[in-house]
Amino acid sequence: MQLLMQQMVDGIAWGSLYGALALTLVLVYRASGIINFAQAEFAMVGAFVAWQFHDWGAPILLAIGAAMVLSFFGGAAAELIFVRPLGRNASHFTLIIITLGLMLVFNNGAGWVWDFSTRSFPEIWSGPVLNIGPAVLSRQAFAIIAAAGIIAVILYVIFQRTRVGLAMRAAVGNPESATLSGIGVANLTTITWGMAAVIGTLVASLAAPQLFLQPNMLFTTLIYAFAAMILGGLNSPPGALVAGIIVGVVENLAGTYIPGIGNDFKQAIALVIIIGVLVVRPQGLFGKKEVARV
């Protein structure tokens, strides 16, 4: 029972990380209609910037905050420079190739600036572990769970209670009608890319103490985030967070209790989830079927 509880708690902690990263993918998909394969690299670069500020003497929380601010402008600039000129009618293949190119540029750029060696990243909350029944949870893992919950609340308030959020929802639901109503759809898309970069930087900075800071640190995490995105639904931010926790728990339990999987083969669980959802319920657990005229 203790082992089961520990795997559940660890799964929730890592699942919160997957869900938060999946949320950034969903935000960009809702705004632009594309899957941004460079999203993890945006987050990784943001974590490196936070580490650099801290290395220069800034407190870690201030360093992460400054990196998040810069990430907003970096994500917005990426959309302005590389995506907006193509317009909303650009082919999905073209946009995917652009995001893959950005992924390679950011990955190799980080390696060129900071090299590919691993670095330690300070925890934002260190100290004795927290006892949750028979299981234990590190304070940094608790910070990841808390951050995912805070992100969800903030986004809910933005989308439900602010004029900008309501305009974003209108722009996503019907871009043509939103444009005719005077809503700047293109500018809102740029803002969404910036928001996704901000969340990604926070996620990467919280994960870096466990994953160690290096240009490829989020590659495996991105696979799990894709699984959460597919499972939750491409258009459902709450679904991404919930599905991330499901993926984290299932991954941990499968690695512990299914013979032959173990820690070295757990990534296959994410691929199985992606394939299974696409076959059985393509719209995901929380997504809705889209009706299109032909």
Rank of each mutant, 00 (worst) to 15 (best):
1 M>C: 05
2 Q>S: 14
3 L>F: 13
5 M>F: 11
6 Q>D: 06
14 W>E: 10
14 W>R: 10
20 A>M: 15
20 A>L: 15
23 L>Q: 06
27 L>V: 13
29 Y>K: 03
29 Y>I: 02
29 Y>S: 02
30 R>P: 04
33 G>Y: 14
34 I>R: 07
37 F>G: 14
37 F>K: 13
41 E>D: 14
48 F>M: 06
56 W>K: 09
61 L>M: 07
64 I>W: 11
66 A>C: 08
67 A>Q: 05
72 F>Y: 12
75 G>K: 07
76 A>D: 02
77 A>L: 11
80 L>D: 01
83 V>W: 00
85 P>K: 00
88 R>N: 03
89 N>G: 08
89 N>F: 10
89 N>V: 14
100 L>G: 06
107 N>D: 10
113 V>D: 02
113 V>S: 01
114 W>D: 05
116 F>A: 13
119 R>S: 05
120 S>Y: 03
122 P>N: 02
124 I>L: 12
126 S>C: 01
127 G>I: 05
131 N>S: 08
133 G>V: 06
133 G>S: 09
136 V>T: 06
143 A>R: 09
146 A>D: 03
147 A>H: 03
149 G>A: 11
149 G>F: 07
150 I>F: 10
152 A>T: 15
157 V>H: 12
158 I>V: 15
158 I>L: 13
163 R>C: 01
166 L>S: 01
171 A>N: 11
174 N>G: 02
175 P>K: 06
177 S>E: 03
180 L>W: 00
181 S>N: 01
184 G>M: 00
186 A>K: 08
188 L>Y: 14
194 G>K: 11
194 G>D: 08
195 M>G: 05
196 A>T: 07
196 A>L: 05
202 L>C: 11
204 A>G: 15
204 A>F: 13
206 L>H: 10
207 A>P: 08
210 Q>M: 08
210 Q>K: 09
211 L>K: 11
213 L>K: 09
214 Q>W: 11
218 L>Q: 08
219 F>A: 13
221 T>R: 06
224 Y>H: 14
226 F>T: 02
227 A>V: 04
228 A>Q: 12
230 I>D: 09
230 I>G: 12
231 L>S: 05
231 L>C: 09
231 L>A: 05
234 L>A: 09
237 P>T: 04
239 G>L: 02
240 A>L: 12
241 L>S: 14
245 I>Y: 08
252 N>F: 08
252 N>P: 02
253 L>F: 15
261 I>N: 13
265 F>N: 15
268 A>V: 09
268 A>F: 14
269 I>W: 15
271 L>T: 10
274 I>T: 09
276 G>L: 14
277 V>S: 05
278 L>Y: 10
282 P>H: 15
283 Q>M: 00
283 Q>A: 01
286 F>K: 04
287 G>V: 01
287 G>I: 01
288 K>C: 00
290 E>S: 15
